[in-house]
């Protein structure tokens, strides 16, 4: 459905892979936890000291939470990547749409990172570095096994097709 490739290379129509639901779950949980804390921190003192009608302000973070819930879902659905024969495609973003193509031969370094929260949810990110600092190629929220498979495959392909600057 996406215009990721032109008609000329029908033979190599990319096979898009979405992100596993773990990332969405993690982001939504973080959203609920932080905004929940904010709602309570706002609503309880207001209700106690300024009267219950003032406590209605606490609905504001709740509204943001509901909006964020939807936005996170849309954003998560927009993330996808495709491994083609010679390059990696990453497509992301709803309002600000970004599409990146990194040829395997250009990879200088493949990085797998996983923070404490990500680890708790069993997630890992893969980041690709080329000689250009502007290259922005990160795939977040992958299953660690998939992240390692991707890293190994990218490294292998990168070595096979490696080129100078």
């Amino acid at each position: 459905m996406e215009t990721g490739t032109a008609a000329q290379d029908d033979a190599r129509e990319p096979v898009w892979t979405g992100l596993p639901p773990g990332l969405l779950k993690m982001r939504r949980m973080l959203l609920v936890v932080w905004l929940g804390v904010l709602t309570v921190a706002l609503g309880v003192p207001l209700g106690l000291f300024a009267g219950p009608e003032w406590a209605a302000f606490a609905l504001l973070p709740l509204g943001v939470m509901a909006w964020g819930w939807v936005v996170l879902g849309r954003n998560w659905r927009s993330w996808r990547y495709a491994e083609r024969a010679d390059d990696l495609l990453i497509s992301k973003g709803v309002l600000w749409h970004h599409e990146t193509i990194v040829p395997y031969g250009r990879m200088q370094l493949v990085e797998v990172t996983s923070g404490p929260v990500e680890r708790h949810f069993g997630l890992a990110s893969v980041q690709l570095h080329t000689a250009a600092a502007a290259t922005d190629a990160t795939i977040p929220g992958l299953d660690p096994a998939e992240a390692e498979r991707l890293r190994d495959r990218l490294t292998e392909l990168g070595e096979a097709r490696s080129a100078g600057l």
């Binding site: 309002l95 749409h97 193509i101 250009a132 290259t135």
Partner: peptide
């Protein structure tokens, strides 16, 4: 060319 990117804002 090291990488190619397409961007589109709202």
């Amino acid at each position: 060319v090291q990488s190619v990117r397409l961007t589109q804002g709202p």
